[in-house]
Amino acid sequence: MELKTENLTYEYESNSATPTRAVDGVSFVIPGGEFLGIVGHTGSGKTTLVQLLDGLLKPSAGTVYLDGEDINAKNYSRKKMRAGIGIVFQYPEYQLFESTILKDVCFGPKNQGLKDEEAEKVAVEALKRVGIKEEQFELSPFELSGGQRRRVAIAGVLAMQPKILILDEPTAGLDPAGREEMLSLMDELNRDGMTIILISHSMEDVAAHASRIMVLDKGKVFLDGAPAEVFAHVEELENIGLAAPEAYYILEEIRKAGLEIETENTVTVEDAVSKIKKSLC
């Protein structure tokens, strides 16, 4: 499934004298199977953009196309769109409401019109996928730890079998191990052909996993390209309050200290290690 936007714009409080443009004339194409990272400072319009992509907000101007169809057109089937796009909001663990984990994960599939048994089948699959054990299925969501609850909430979206999965800050508030688990789950889903759109303000997370990075600033697309391309613009990134991955800065320090080393295209820690090795040999 291809997701495309054209001149997408959203204004808050459009009836007041000074509307704020949260998203300002954004156009891009996300082909099926891509792992896109959207990065931006707080207030850059990331969350608003996500809600526009899922049709939860109506754009003030511009269009969102899913497989070439305008999702805000009058006769467009919302149900079809929701089956295509899954969205995991910030702190999704606070949306759980059912008495057991399994029932909660069934909520989405049932809304899609699946029968109880079928819904349960996809729910079990989704729960196993995020690493929830079978003996926990009948527990109340409130008996789990925060990290586990978040995984249950993600399973609730996965159970709807979306082709495109949007995650808004899925690693916020998790410990390093939980972060890594979450990100590798996304890698896995992406390998199976799901389009992943990861919203984050952590450069490290995005740098190591996404195949393409889009940087937002003041509602506009500031940079868009492969991680190495984007992080080549270190100064511009710093100007809008973002930073290149830490690995890059470490290499810069080493270079300043006198070691001859190539610092360009340093995205992940692995890149840095191989470059240090190369310059030492």
Binding site: R82, Y94, V157
Partner: peptide, 16 residues
């Protein structure tokens, strides 16, 4: 604000 967020999350899960 919280209500708004939860509503959106459940709508995204197909709540009617």
């Amino acid at each position: 604000e919280e209500t708004d967020r939860i509503m959106k999350a459940q709508i995204a899960r197909g709540a009617d």
